[in-house]
Nucleic acid binder design. Structure first.
Lengths: 235, 235
DNA sequence: AAGATAGCTGTACAATGTAAGGCTGTCAAG
DNA sequence: CTTGACAGCCTTACATTGTACAGCTATCTT
C-alpha cells in the first residue's frame, strides 16, 4: 500500500509526442474539435494534463502536430497513385490525388478548421505539394502557372472546400427561420424558383438533402482543372 | 455622493443590439477576433459584461449578428453596381461584385473566420446571393448550373479565399525552419527550382513578399468565371 | 402612491490553457 | 553501494473566458 498513486501495476507505456498526437486525432474524431482539450486529451491517455507539456510546447504546437498527422495520412492515401506521365494525364493524376485527400477529410470532419488555423508550413505539407509540382511539370506547365494553380486550388488541394452556411439537414429542420422564408417569398422571388428548380422539393415542407457535397466538390474541381488545362502552353 | 455608480451625469446612450454589433466590429477591427470577448466588448461600450446579454442571447448570437453586419457592408458596397444586362456582361458584373466584396474583407481581416464558423443562413446573405441569381439569370444560365456555380465559388463569392499556410512575411522571417529548408534542398528538388522561378529571390536569404494576394484572388476568380461562361447553354 | 417592469450591475461558478514547483524512478559517476 | 542529476510525470494554483442568477434602479402605468 506504499505506492498507491497508480492502481494497476502495469508499467504503462510512456508518453511521447507520437502517442499524444495519435490520441489527439482519436479524441477529435469521436468528440469533435471542442472535445480536444488538454485535460480531455490527458484523460484519454490516462495521464494528467500537465504531463502533456513535457512533450508538446503548448496547445498551438499540439494542433500543429495534429495538422501534420492529417497531411501524413493524405500522403499515405496518395502514395500508391501512379505518377503523371505527360500532358495527357496530368489532369487525371491531379484529380485522383485530390479526391484521395478528400477521403481523409471525410474521416476527419474537424480537420479543415485545424488546417486553416495553421499558419506555418510543415514537412508533410511540403512533401504533398511537391507531388503537385511533379504533376504540373508532367503537364508541361510553367512554374509560374503552377504557382497560380496552387493558390487557385487553395484548400481544395487538401481535399476540402469549407462550405459556407452549409444547409446540411441538422437534427431540427428549422434551419431556415420563418421570417427568412417569408422574406424570400416576397423580396427574393428568384430564390423561390431557384429552390423549386434545384431542390426538387416544394419550399413548403423542407426536406432537404439537396446539396450533394461530393458532386459539388468534383464540379468545382473539374472547373478549375479544365481551366488550368486550357492555360497550359502546349496543347 | 449618493449615486456614485457612474461618475459623469451624462445620461449615456442606452445599449441596443445595433450599438453592440457596431462596437463588436470595431473591437475586432482594432484588436482581432481574439480581442472580441464579452468583457472587452462591454468595456468598449462602458458597460458591464452581463448587460450585453439583455440584447444578445449569447456569444454565438453575437457572432451571428457580426456576420450579418459584414454582409450588410458588402451589400452596401455593391449597391451601386449596374445590373447585368445579358450574356455578354454577366461575367463582368459578377467579377465587379465579388471584387467589391473583397474590399470589405480587406477592411475586416477577421471576417472570414466569423463567416466560416456560422452555419445558419441570415437575411443579408440571402439578399446577397439573390443578386448572384439575377446575374446568373442574365447570363442565361440554368438554375442547376447557377447552383453548382454558387458552390464552386464558395467563400470566394463573399470576397475571400482563406489562404492555406499563408507565407506572409511575419515579424520574424523564420517561418521556414532550418530543417524544412534542408529537407527541401535534398528531398524536394522541384521546390528549389520552383521558388527560384517564382519568388525572384534566391532561397538563401528569404525576403518574401512573393504572393500577391490580389493577383492570386483574381486569377482564381477568372478561372472559375471563364469556366462557368463556357458551360452556359447558349454562346 | 404603489407596484411593475425594462435595463443594467455584482457576484459567482465552471471550463479552459498553462506557469511553477514537487515527487519519483532510472542511471551514471564516485 | 551511495549519491547525485535529470527525465518524466504530478499537484497546486491562477488568469481568462462565457454565462447563470439574483439584485438594484429609474421610469412608466394604474
Amino acid at each position: 500500500m506504499a505506492t498507491e498513486t497508480r492502481q494497476d501495476a502495469s508499467p504503462r507505456t510512456p508518453l511521447s509526442r507520437e502517442r499524444i498526437l495519435t490520441a489527439a486525432v482519436a479524441v477529435a474524431d469521436s468528440g469533435g474539435l471542442e472535445a480536444l482539450t488538454m485535460r480531455g486529451l490527458a484523460d484519454a491517455l490516462d495521464v494528467e494534463a500537465m504531463s502533456l507539456y513535457y512533450h508538446v510546447a503548448n496547445k498551438e504546437a499540439l494542433l500543429d502536430g495534429v495538422a501534420e498527422r492529417v497531411v501524413e495520412e493524405i500522403l499515405d492515401e496518395v502514395a500508391d497513385l501512379p505518377p503523371a506521365t505527360g500532358p495527357d494525364d496530368w489532369k487525371q493524376a491531379m484529380r485522383s490525388r485530390i479526391l484521395r485527400a478528400r477521403q481523409v477529410m471525410l474521416r476527419h470532419k474537424w480537420a479543415p478548421w485545424v488546417l486553416e488555423s495553421r499558419t506555418t508550413m510543415n514537412s508533410p505539407v511540403l512533401r504533398y505539394y511537391h507531388g503537385f509540382l511533379e504533376i504540373f511539370q508532367a503537364g508541361g506547365m510553367s512554374y509560374d502557372l503552377a504557382h497560380h494553380a496552387m493558390h487557385a486550388l487553395g484548400s481544395r488541394a487538401l481535399g476540402f472546400s469549407q462550405e459556407m452556411f452549409d444547409p446540411a439537414p441538422g437534427t431540427d429542420d428549422e434551419e431556415m427561420s420563418e421570417e427568412l422564408f417569408a422574406q424570400m417569398a416576397t423580396e427574393l422571388p428568384l430564390f423561390v424558383e431557384f429552390m423549386e428548380a434545384v431542390v426538387h422539393v416544394d419550399p413548403e415542407d423542407q426536406t432537404l438533402g439537396w446539396c450533394d457535397d461530393q458532386t459539388e466538390f468534383e464540379f468545382a474541381l473539374d472547373l478549375m482543372l479544365d481551366g488550368l488545362d486550357r492555360l497550359r502552353g502546349d496543347d
